[in-house]
């Protein structure tokens, strides 16, 4: 490919990125072209798109954030986050781009971007009570989430929705149990109807920052109506803001269901694991009765 064609393709990719972002392959292609052409990352098209977007959004009165969200946003700030972004930020090293004339090469079709790392986040709830058993007794001000669970796997009755090769979670769990620092706690069901007859356990390795939930008998959920979510209370963190351990679904199936824990922040000193039921349509204040399982350490 000649340099002219490379520059044309580079311009095309930068335009696509500015408009709708790039998938993993296109992102790699962009980086390669920038490298070959000795071009720095040019943010100016993204800035132009963002400025236009800003102008359009501000044509109307802005929508107000849901109650409680601002507190969660400030609560998730930690000084060590500063300067840790892996995403490119605006830079002065730019390459002047020509206007791209037709014909244009076909841009990659947007697809699942497995290579795009999701920024780690902590869903910070204002809890009316401290962690531990008080969690069960006090007012739970909740947070609804419909995040797709990264993996939803079970050891029996494998769900048809899984599209990736499935690791043997049962074997992984057994291996984790061999770690010296692993904790294993049985779930305790509440009187929530979803938890009737439910059991299992949670295993967690602080050194590996890895864990699994095992469920038996937990009621199937309809993901269009409700989803389960794990919360991890950490004694080294503010009790009001348990660490988000991931959203998951329970399909009909037999046998144990094993789901990996996806803690969004390091869990330093866990004291309680709690599974809640959250709705899919933006409930900000959770129903207090929708705590279904808890597993308290040293309790």
């Amino acid at each position: 490919m000649s340099d002219d064609l490379r520059e044309s393709r580079l311009a095309e990719l930068l335009c696509d990125r500015a408009l709708l972002g790039l998938d993993g392959d296109a992102h790699d292609e962009l980086a390669e072209l920038q490298d070959v052409l000795g071009a720095g990352d040019d943010p100016t098209l993204e800035i132009a798109a963002a400025a236009a977007h800003l102008a359009l959004v501000q044509q109307d009165e802005l929508a107000s954030m849901p109650e409680g969200l601002a507190a969660r946003l400030t609560g998730q700030f930690e000084p060590e986050m500063l300067g840790t972004s892996e995403a490119p930020a605006p830079s002065c090293r730019v390459l002047a781009l020509p206007i791209v004339e037709a014909p244009l090469a076909q841009a990659p079709t947007p697809a699942n971007d497995a290579q795009t790392e999701r920024p780690k986040s902590r869903v910070a709830w204002p809890f009316a009570v401290a962690a531990g058993l008080a969690f069960l007794l006090g007012g739970l001000v909740g947070h609804e989430s419909s995040r797709p669970v990264a993996q939803r796997l079970e050891t029996a009755g494998l769900g048809a929705d899984v599209r990736v090769p499935r690791p043997d979670l049962s074997a992984q769990r057994r291996a984790l149990l061999a770690e010296a620092d692993v904790v294993r706690i049985a779930w305790k069901a509440t009187d929530d109807s979803a938890a009737t007859g439910a059991g299992g356990d949670v295993v967690w390795s602080p050194s590996k920052q890895k864990g699994f939930m095992r469920f038996t008998g937990l009621q199937r959920n309809d993901a269009s109506q409700t989803r389960y979510q794990l919360w991890i209370f950490d004694q080294k963190r503010d009790d009001r803001y348990p660490v988000d351990g991931g959203v998951f679904d329970i399909d009909a199936g037999t046998g144990d269901i094993i789901i990996p824990i996806e803690a969004k922040l390091p869990v330093l000193d866990p004291s309680l694991f709690a599974v809640t039921v959250e709705g899919p349509d933006g409930v900000v204040v959770s129903n207090r009765e929708r705590i279904v399982l808890t597993a308290a350490i040293d309790g």
Binding site: R72, M81, P119, V123, E144, S145, G279
Partner: peptide, 13 residues
Amino acid sequence: RSEAEDAVQDIFV
């Protein structure tokens, strides 16, 4: 709204 809430938290991080 639920997805927007999650996204906003990610964005601010």
